[in-house]
């Protein structure tokens, strides 16, 4: 539901009134407040007070993210992608061999002065 709320806010460039958001999503206003609080906490939206038909509400706007292709390159270590993505093994990060391999690749890149995340080489 959080993703749906965010998508709805993003699809409205002028922002969405919080009083309209819960109606559009078919949820009650209390649940909507909790979702909005979470989105605000994650820095995904901004909120401004506004009066709509004499009632105080908030206008919610999605935070613009630059379409930066490099934003997620820290998921790479040399040419190894984030080992946790899609992983279905029992999760023990302290001893996980796949996470160790990824970390050793990072440490190796650091010690040899190679680019730590060479996404361009994919």
């Amino acid at each position: 539901m959080i993703e749906e709320a965010l998508e709805y806010i993003r699809s409205n460039p002028d922002g969405v009134l919080q009083s309209d958001l819960w109606k559009a999503l078919g949820i009650d206003s209390r649940k909507c407040s909790r979702i909005v609080a979470k989105l605000l906490k994650d820095g995904l939206i901004t909120r401004e007070e506004e009066l709509a038909e004499g009632v105080r509400t908030y206008r919610l706007r999605a935070v613009e993210r630059p379409a930066c292709t490099d934003r997620f390159t820290p998921l790479m270590a040399s040419d190894i992608f984030d080992p946790c993505a899609g992983c279905t093994d029992e999760c023990v990060p302290e001893r996980c061999p796949k996470l160790s391999e990824w970390l050793f690749a990072l440490a190796f890149s650091k010690s040899t002065g190679q680019k730590p995340h060479a996404a361009a080489s994919l």
Partner: peptide, 20 residues
């Protein structure tokens, strides 16, 4: 939805790295 899926992966990886 790829970017939001990658953001979720980033959050997950940060948690695992903190444990490690």
């Amino acid at each position: 939805a790829l970017d939001s899926a990658l953001e979720a992966e980033v959050r997950k990886l940060i948690n695992k790295l903190n444990a490690r």
